[in-house]
Design a protein around this nucleic acid. Structure first.
Lengths: 164, 164
DNA sequence: GACAATTGTTGTCGTCAACAACAATCTTCC
DNA sequence: GGAAGATTGTTGTTGACGACAACAATTGTC
């Protein structure tokens, strides 16, 4: 194997084979530490995992929660309107609604104004379920607060308000 | 329960059929606005899209960039070490490295200390390529700065430093 | 009334996280 | 020294998700 001595100032010389045991926490991230995307990605993974876990007992995932919340606050919306507002593909929303409708949380009602579209509503069961989901989601949000701090969380929300 | 969410339009009234045309920007997000996860998710999608676009000419995606950067800064690491450090499944890293090795950016060298593991190194071609990737990634980072503001970006990095 | 646009739907493709199982190889412990 | 257990890389599957393309039904426009 060509050793190909690397000259570009690495922090740890290792000729070609492995050198020694390296603890995970002494591995440098180099340029990654300056990239917002990397930090945001890791944070987002953490946050989703906590959300999924916290709402595990009711088996609701973040996307499902967002769809239910928007329908609950805006009854009668079309699928297209929900998809646009939440940045979800309308093709994907079809499956999401199939699942939620099967669980009797949502119903699609044929619109009489535009017979192409469906008016989306929560069922009575969906309303009470959503109330519980919101309580659990609030609990999840407290976990976030504990993780990054109350002030930081609020600042985060403010910084990213433009993306909602 | 919290049925009346948006105050902006008092009568949403949609008994069962559809009501009226609703503009996308007047749909209330209700509880979602208070969830950091929602904002973070939307932001992360935006940031990845810009990254993929900005590094489109070299066909490098965020995860590939992170792997190359870490290997470049820590030559000789095992796949397990890289996977742990970046929070990637080791099963997934296999395919990532297959691709990068096929493109002659990375090579796997059999470790002599532990014959189970591979020592990961950039090729000479990989080193020069990574330098270019870093320039493009820096350009992407400037896009982020333009989007949310210089001070906000730095504050974001600081808030989320614990997740890197 | 003809033609373009929209809505919901179905389907495919590729990325990604999460598991499970396996062979080869270390490590530990008796 | 050797059996038992853990680790490393690999292969495979599953499911959520974003992106696209095509289609029928319906609406809007000219």
């Amino acid at each position: 194997m060509t050793a190909s001595a690397t000259q570009t100032s690495p922090r740890k010389r290792a000729g070609n084979g492995a050198a020694r045991r390296i603890d995970a926490d002494e591995i440098g991230l180099d340029a990654l530490v300056g990239h917002a995307g990397y930090a945001v990605r890791r944070f987002q993974i953490w946050i989703f995992q906590d959300f999924i876990k916290t709402l595990g007992e009711v088996d609701i995932r973040p996307t499902q929660y967002s769809v239910l919340t928007v329908i609950g606050a805006n009854p009668g919306l079309s699928q297209m309107a929900v998809a646009k507002r939440l940045g979800i593909e309308r093709a994907r929303l079809v499956h999401l609604l199939d699942s939620l409708e099967q669980r009797k949380l949502v119903k699609r009602i044929k619109s009489k104004l535009d017979r192409r579209s469906h008016a989306l509503h929560l069922t009575a069961q969906g309303e009470t379920a959503l109330a519980k989901f919101k309580r659990l989601a609030a609990e999840h949000e407290r976990h976030v607060e504990e993780k990054i701090g109350k002030a930081n969380r609020e600042q985060l929300l403010q910084i990213l308000a433009g993306f909602t």
